[in-house]
Design a protein around this nucleic acid. Structure first.
Lengths: 205, 205
DNA sequence: ATCATATTGTGTTTATTTGCACTAAAAGGG
DNA sequence: CCCTTTTAGTGCAAATAAACACAATATGAT
């Protein structure tokens, strides 16, 4: 358990999401077979993945969904809510700030930053846009560990360096470029175009 | 080349993005070493990946960037622009429609749809919001192969079925759930929370 | 012209990931 | 109570992916 491959970890949130969806639909138990069909992953794969962390099912009956959800929340450390900062209040930053889907899945935006003097101080959804100059100081003080990065590509690396300086250890990067960070900092990339280009490869012209 | 692993294909857009960024910064040649440092992938990996499609570099000197970009555009089939439809004109759909970064990377939103009578017919950025009831017919007629899906989770599968019926073969799914599609249809998932949860695993509470 | 340096493409090895198939256990029916 | 069915967890084999290391080749300096 001290050395679970990242590829296994990356599937857990997908299982979690499907299980939470099942609960909403009134189900209380499931099997690796059924879950696998929902998420498009083989039943054996799911059992192997879960077995990395313990035994969560019962032979013959499968998995108790609320228990498995709870276990996954613990494993992923999202049974409590993480404070996250948002940097870059353009079009996308605004949409993210207004999105209601973070809190009940473990993340709460506690502050948002921009460098544009025209934006700093204005209010959106009860959030005051703060000056990115205060980012390092604020992040250190509030011990922020996670950030979402929505600035233009041209300033993304600069802001990343600030986040790292401020003690942030996990960055969700919406800027369309690869970031350089120390090995102890994690980055997840969200670039819709990369997804589209991956799929275009398989299309016929 | 008829059977390149998807994991290789998935890295090509990352290489492409980094190379295009290099061109902007005035560079005209690079090496697998340098590119690897930029994108966080080993030089050997990059060479192996590219060798799946041909020989693009020269011993001693490395890669000519414009030539490699061109080659990757061809391989990924994004040297021309694909028509894409957008379904779901909520907060996120609006932000996507206003985003300027698709066209110069190979994708053009040609129509947007919603099911809300209050939205249908209204205009955003020169786009009229169309009735999702016309989606299947329109997609067939215009031979649309790609779609972005931004509807709520509760209607995502239903709309997906419409897209498949309309002949769409590639779906960029922003709805936070796994979709069921025929094997010949590809889906790429964009769920920021999954990225955050993956990273939370590695944080200490 | 020769040598030192840089760097690709690739055969081979190593590591990782997935799938298979079986044992063990649980539940339900007659 | 026993038999059938279901299904988890897992050791092992197969498949896949990544890393290594080296021959081949290009450049530029002396």
């Amino acid at each position: 358990m001290t050395d679970v491959p990242d590829i296994v970890v990356s599937r857990l949130p997908v299982y979690l999401r499907a299980l939470q969806y099942m609960v909403i639909n009134g189900k209380s138990t499931t099997s690796s077979q059924e879950l696998g069909e929902k998420v498009g992953i083989s039943a054996a794969q799911i059992r192997k993945d879960l077995s990395q962390f313990g035994e969560f099912g019962k032979q013959g009956t499968g998995y108790n969904i609320p228990f498995l959800i709870d276990s996954l929340l613990q494993i992923l450390k999202v049974e409590k809510v993480w404070d996250v900062v948002l940097v870059g209040m353009g079009e996308l930053g605004h949409a993210i700030l207004r999105y209601q889907g973070f809190v009940n899945r473990g993340f709460n935006i506690v502050a948002c930053y921009d460098s544009d003097p025209l934006k700093i101080g204005t209010k959106i959804n009860n959030y005051s846009i703060l000056d990115v100059k205060d980012l390092v100081k604020d992040a250190k003080k509030a011990e922020i560990k996670m950030a979402m990065l929505c600035v233009p590509a041209s300033s993304a690396q600069k802001v990343t360096d600030l986040l790292v300086e401020g003690g942030v250890l996990a960055i969700l990067n919406y800027a369309p470029l690869s970031l350089a960070v120390p090995t102890y900092v994690r980055v997840q990339y969200i670039d819709p175009v990369i997804g589209l280009q991956r799929m275009a490869y398989y299309l016929n012209k």
